[in-house]
Amino acid sequence: MGSVTTIMDENKNEKLERYSTLRVVLRRMKRNKGGIAGLIVVLIYFVIAVIGLWIVPYHPDEPDFESALMPPNPKHPFGTDLFGRDVLSRVIAGARTSFTISIFAVALTVFIGLVIGTIAGYVGGWVDEVLMRFLDIFMAFPEILLAIAIVAILGPGKINIVIAIAVFSFPSFARITRASVISVKSNDYVEAAKAIGESDMSIMLRYILPNALSPVVVQATLRMGTAILTISSLGFLGLGVKAPEAEWGTELAMARSYLESAPWLSIFPGIAIVLVVLGFNFLGDALNDALNPRLKDR
């Protein structure tokens, strides 16, 4: 600093090092109210998705024409639809649908993104150049259009929706991973591992990937929200899961025709989508703040 130097507290540095791990991340998370709210919503969503079919008050798919289009009442708190199905039960069943598809879609996305991003970042040179231009082409398509095109080719269905989401999501993942890998690559421990002759594969898997993961975790959380939105969008367009399976977007597409006579049909599934996506966005933001404290605006 200046001509006046002070003696550094060396112990302090050591402590800093040790704490800058999971514990610090958790402690920072705890202070973030939005993050906790997000986490709670996401956990509730997980639980409902897993045990939902055992707690539904009515069978979500079985029609009961006698009680069709009933407004919310004590027996059916969210009302009933055209076929007399309980909307609350359908919303709960819809959680399972969107959860299953989105979790597989994000997993597939992360996998492809990690592979391409790590190779591009680690190998560099023309391999990197070619892979990046390849990604540019995918990124030239507006997201939902790419999904529509893929569902148009492969036909509707859960697996095809998973693929459609992965296809438009992986480029941004690959880019983030690549940037992260490049910044980790220049660390001394990577150089050291190279120097003692470890193979590229083991360097990538043992040293680079684990250290490059934090932006990927954040992105994966945020992508869950995007995936859920996309699933419902495809459902709304009629390109979602097959009837009679409950899915929030599909429910809303049906509700479109009954806006005047049965507005409750278009309220509850929409609220469910907003809440869950909001939960993932809050959680993702909080994770981002906790993992990259420097980026946080004070």
């Binding site: 969008s233 709304f236 929409g270 909001l278 966005n281």
Partner: peptide, 16 residues
């Protein structure tokens, strides 16, 4: 935050 988490088509339905 709510705006970024709301599906476009649902917002459309609500506005209608």
């Amino acid at each position: 935050l709510i705006g970024a988490s709301t599906p476009v088509f649902w917002l459309g339905l609500l506005l209608i």
